[in-house]
Each structure stands twice: as C-alpha cells, then as structure tokens.
Nucleic acid binder design. Sequence first.
DNA 1: ACCTGAACACCGTTCAAGT
DNA 2: ACCTGAACACCGTTCAAGT
Lengths: 211, 211
Amino acid sequence: MTRLTRDSIVTTAIEVIGKHGSEQLSVRRLGEAIDADPTAIYRHFRSKDELLRAIGDRCLIGVTDDLPTTSWRECIRELCIRIRAANLAQPALATLVRGAPPRHDNERRITETILARLGEAGFDSAAAAFAYHALIELTIGSAAIDSSLASEDSAARARIYAEWRSDYAALDAGMFPRSVGGAASLYPGTADDRFAYALDRLLDGLAGTLS
Amino acid sequence: MTRLTRDSIVTTAIEVIGKHGSEQLSVRRLGEAIDADPTAIYRHFRSKDELLRAIGDRCLIGVTDDLPTTSWRECIRELCIRIRAANLAQPALATLVRGAPPRHDNERRITETILARLGEAGFDSAAAAFAYHALIELTIGSAAIDSSLASEDSAARARIYAEWRSDYAALDAGMFPRSVGGAASLYPGTADDRFAYALDRLLDGLAGTLS
DNA sequence: ACCTGAACACCGTTCAAGT
DNA sequence: ACCTGAACACCGTTCAAGT
C-alpha cells in the first residue's frame, strides 16, 4: 500500500473478505493487510459500520447497468435478483440490513432506477414509494436470511436442506400434521428459486394495483 | 435465582433486555443478573446463539392463538403481523435472521398454521411450500430491516424518516430526477404500514395462483 | 497531515479445579 | 451434579504522542 485512501482500504478489505471470509474482517486483521496500524482506518472511516457500508456499495457496482428494457417488471425483477446476488456474495453485508436510505452512488442508482421504472409504468409517487419499499424489504430481507448458507457450496446447501426436511418429517404427526405431510415439499429448489417465486408473486400483486 | 434452568435463564435474559436493551445482552451481563458466574450459562446452552434462539421462541408465545377464522388470507396476514411485532419487540432477535427451520415449539406452530391454512385454501404441497417460504422471507426479512429503528419511539422514528426524505430531496436532480421528485412520498406512513402493504401485495400474488 | 501504539472497556468460550 | 474462576483469543474505539 503506497497511500492510504478510502478506496484503497475498501479494495484491501474486499481481498481480506475473499481470503478469510467476511466474518473474519476485523479492524485488526484489516490493519495487517493494509500494512499499517489498525487504528489508521479510523482516519478514513468514522466507524467500522461506515467502512462496511462503503464495501457494500462497492459490491453493487454495475447492478443498474444494461437492465432489460422489455418491461418495467422484467427490469425491476432483474435488478432485484442482482442486488440479492451482490449481497449474498459478501455475506457480512447482508447482516448490515437496515432501513436507512442509500448514502452511496450505486445504492442511489438502484432507488432511482426502481422509482423511474415504476413511474413510467403508471404508479403515482405514493404508490411507487410503497412498491419501492416492498421490493427492497423482500430483496434485502431475503438476502439477509439466506446469507447464513451462502458460504456453503451448492452440494452442501442441498444436503442441509435435506436434513431440515427430515427434521420436519420427524415431528409429531398428531400436533404437526401439515408439517409432517408436507415435509418432502419444503425448501423446494434453491434459495434463489424461492426468492424468485416470492418476487414474482409480489410483482403480480403490485401489477394488480395498476389496473 | 434459586435454581438455574434453561427457562429461568431465558426469563432473566428477557428482563435484562427489557432494562438495558438487546444489544447489551452479553454473557457476562447475564451472569451478573442470574447471580452466578457467566460461564454457568454454558452448562445449559451450547452457545449464546442457542440461548438467543430460546429467547426468540419465548417471544413468540401465543402468536398462533385465536387467529381470525374468516379466511386463510386474514389468518395468515394477522399471523405474519404478529410475528413481525414479536421480532421487533426484541431487536436483537431480528439480527438472528436465518433460513434454518424452527427448532422450538412456538416456531413450529407457526409453520404448521401457515401450511394448514394454505392447504385448506387449495394450495397443493409444492405451492404451499413456495408460498410459506415467500411469506416467511418477507416477514422476517422486513423485521430485520426495521429492527434498527425499533428501539426509537414513534416521534423519533417520524423525525428520522423526515431526515431521510430530505436526503433524497437534496440529491442532484439531473442524475436522480425521480428520487428528488418523489422524495416527499418516500417512507410513507409507518414501517408497519409499509410492511402491511408489501404483505397484502404478496398475498394478492399468492391468491392469484389459486385461480 | 498523517500514522502509531498504548490503553480502555469490553467480547464468547474452554476447561481444570473446586464443592 | 453443578458451578467457579482463571485464562485464551479476541473485539471496536480513543487519544496523546510521534514523524
């Protein structure tokens, strides 16, 4: 590291996360990676939280680029799927879930894109605001929930889901008849599939308010 | 504390959270409250995570009691609103978001209730599973997102939302025209209102798959 | 102007030893 | 059988001092 800047710290932090996993990103470890005293970071970021948010925004680079122009639904659907993917790629970020507004450029472009497509589709600004918040809550919330398993590979995830299905199947059938009966159907597909299903149903519901 | 049990530890932990806030619940602080050595807790819980989950389940007591019988939608809607409220009442729990299956009784009753109402409504087990996961992702995910502000009172929350609207309004109107134009409409109502809207649109979409 | 390093006030968890 | 207490291996953050 020739020079310490916000950008260079973020870059190194992402390398550290890539190598050691996002739970292992501590101020001390990051200090080692940037070859400076850990506390030097506090010269560039007010807190670790602020650093994590900057990392989060870096991960969102390009999510609003080249989105489908076929329809507002397709565009927003693809954007939400990309946001989720970006969040799951850095599981530590998903735990940073928060209702605060975007303070960084990539985040701002997301808001702008969603509001613009909704506006063009015919939502007035009140309806667009409710729809925007609904989409973000589902997308970010779902990523937070799924992030616990995001570090496993797909075979491991499939194995874990199978275990969980067995747990349901082993419940007392008198008290939990539907859980036992439906156990084999729970956790269908991948977490991405389940998110896509939820997103599509939410978009159905939102589209229904237009007519 | 006359005797240390899982239940008595959970009860005391909830008292500590009530007094000091859920971020302040540490093993050491809880040890003080139960008037025992902090590490005695590890005799009853494998980890702090296991303790938090037990606390989480305690907070869900009664959520499946006396639900509306008017329709599957009304029943599930009310249940999701109660689950959200229970999670927001203990903000620490919302950060425990996870995709793992319920391992405690109150959680299990939630799954059973949702699957049962969906089944009665005509969803087959595959469709019911997708619908169940969609509802849970939105409900728990949204609670996680909103938990950061749950400890503030409603006046403080309203003030914070007003600030966030100003942030949007202050953006560059050339780059973010819709965000600036729609700023006054963002964060409409309370977080509960926005969740209810999202939940209703998701239920619209799910109901649409029945016909 | 920028960075260091000691220090503060904490964490969750383990395990040999006590009663 | 149950609990203690020392210890381990860490945290995020502040601030006077250095260069």
